[in-house]
Design a protein around this nucleic acid. Structure first.
Lengths: 222, 222
DNA sequence: GTCTATAGGGGGATAGAC
DNA sequence: GTCTATCCCCCTATAGAC
């Protein structure tokens, strides 16, 4: 065994890799402990339950990302203390920390998919946990977007933030399906190009003039 | 029993409701047949396996939607045979058929979440199935967007289409979490407002000038 | 802290009567 | 076509030796 990592971290490493590949319900503690090369019972000794492993794995994945998001936003707001706050800059602060994960070691690449998957996973116990982990980020970025997009009604702003999250989550999922992103040759240039495209696209959506569709279109859905 | 539906359809009705609520792995054939008020063995008689039930439920849900998408696009291309094809109109053809589902009977509302969930479900056997079901729609809409957005490089166009799908999929998932969309009072006005917001947002992204981020931002991710 | 062994419950699938 | 009964698998969790 080349690593000196302790049992707890070996379990979390395996949890990240397997949960992202097969979903929570698709991973048994047996497959998990086999992958981690630890005993089945040790997972209960260290975590107490499968549910606790899921939360711990997710927390270890997302906390540094959200910390970096807030740090980037701090820096951004300090630079622009007096004047204009750019939408693209705010989006960059929101997106780039996750994108960075997609370029790390192959063990870390699966993190990205894990985060995106967990958001759509219907486990009831995850929803309040998610809310806790993201509350600060959501609050701070809502304020930043409100400043970058003056005049946009709050309800519309919140909808657009959800759309932005949708773009990111979906892109994270798609990054795991390599055949979709084969324009670049590898991870290094790709991640940067995808991030740039994402920021441009979402900025375009954020900046769109809010308003109604043409009447003809509205009738068609009524 | 008020309905005269046969066993097969009762199973599919229950499958839609339960899969969308709990995910594929979260639903056992036992819970499925209990909800459907049919015998456990009947699911194997009619479908052969759980996997076949999943595919059948998904096909029954998505085929009419994709048919309507293509019909709307047909009509749109006929109207605009000579001149300009509007991005918002194409987006409307792509999005509105799913949005309509979200306003039907409560049994049908869960369809929407089902479709969104299945896209992120990591079941290997679903990916080729998905590809088959959406090939025609993707081909036709890629051509339509190419026409509506002349000059946009094909690779960028494909990225943006994935972003658009991400917005829709994420919105479908969120529609099930009612507390997120409580601005309107019910489903009727909400669905229309959400659809309008979505179309405006994605159109803004589609129409964004493709290009690079500012050099400072690019360095930060390198 | 780490292991073996096992409890106790569900899971998908199937055989065969009706 | 529909049912009951059952096979055999895998699951999480725990007890208790080391």
């Amino acid at each position: 065994m080349p690593r000196t990592a302790d049992t707890k971290e070996q379990i979390l490493d395996a949890a990240e890799a397997l949960f992202s590949a097969h979903g929570i319900e698709g991973v048994s503690l047996r497959s998990l402990t086999k992958e981690a090369k630890v005993n089945l019972a040790s997972v209960h000794y260290h975590f107490g339950s499968k549910e606790a492993v899921v939360k711990a794995a997710f927390a270890r994945c997302i906390r540094p990302v959200n910390r970096e998001r807030l740090a980037l936003l701090d820096q951004l707001e300090k630079e622009a203390a007096d004047g204009h706050l750019g939408v693209e800059a705010v989006l960059f602060a929101l997106f780039s920390p996750t994108m960075k994960l997609a370029r790390g070691s192959s063990e870390r690449q699966s993190f990205v998919r894990l985060c995106a998957r967990l958001y759509s996973e219907p486990a009831d116990y995850l929803e309040p946990f998610f809310e806790d982990e993201f509350r600060e980020v959501m609050k701070r970025f809502e304020a930043a977007f409100a400043r970058a997009l003056p005049g946009l009604p709050q309800h519309e702003l919140r909808s657009r933030m959800r759309f932005a999250v949708g773009v990111m989550a979906h892109t994270m999922l798609d990054c795991g399906r390599t055949h979709n992103w084969t324009a670049g040759k590898g991870d290094e240039t790709d991640a940067q190009a995808i991030l740039a495209s994402m920021v441009r696209f979402v900025a375009g959506g954020m900046l769109a003039r809010p308003g109604r569709m043409t009447p003809a279109r509205e009738e068609a859905v009524a």
